[in-house]
Design a protein around this nucleic acid. Structure first.
Length: 149
DNA sequence: TAGGCCATCTGGTCCT
DNA sequence: AGGACCAGATGGCCTA
């Protein structure tokens, strides 16, 4: 984490509260203190909000396949991976439903998933192997990241 | 050193 | 009025 959090926080808050002319006009000279207090409270709330958001990202990273990466996924990559993961699971469920009466399909799934601790591990390995079957089930790759407008 | 990623501050907007 | 959310700006850290 940042080493200058407290310094930059207090410094910026003081500047915004007492330093800028626009703030003085906005709040009135006699209200500078209260204006500063409100700005500091808003900054603290925003920090807590972003920390909550980051906690949510960490939880998402834990349930999404990492495919052996030692470096943690960025926020953007985490969202893309989650999207791909959900689509893969949806596809598996859809196929399971469609072929629920076909015992051969069940054996095909079993052969592919066998040896993995769970479905998440399996999908992570599937993404690394990239054979035709896993490529169809789990199409995620870094190169496929695109900005969606 | 440039570029990517991130945390924080800040002002604006919307909602209760 | 105050809180939540958002997007832009800024600066620090890390890696190729």
């Amino acid at each position: 984490m940042k080493s200058n959090i407290s310094a930059s926080t207090s410094g910026a808050d003081v500047v915004s509260g007492a330093g800028s002319g626009s703030d003085s006009n906005l709040c009135g000279v006699e209200k500078v203190e209260s204006c500063t207090r409100r700005r500091m409270a808003a900054n603290a709330r925003e920090r807590r909000r972003m920390q909550g958001l980051n906690t949510a990202f960490d939880r998402l990273r834990k349930v999404v396949p990492q495919w052996g990466q030692d470096k943690k996924l960025s926020k953007y990559e985490t969202l893309q991976m989650a999207l791909s993961y959900i689509m893969a699971l949806t596809r598996i469920l859809t196929e399971a439903e469609r072929y629920s009466s076909d015992r051969r399909w069940i054996h095909i799934q079993y052969d592919h998933i066998q040896g993995s601790e769970n479905i998440q591990t399996y999908l992570g390995q599937a993404a690394e192997k990239k054979d035709s079957y896993t490529d169809r089930i789990f199409p995620f790759n870094h190169e496929s990241f695109q900005i969606v407008n």
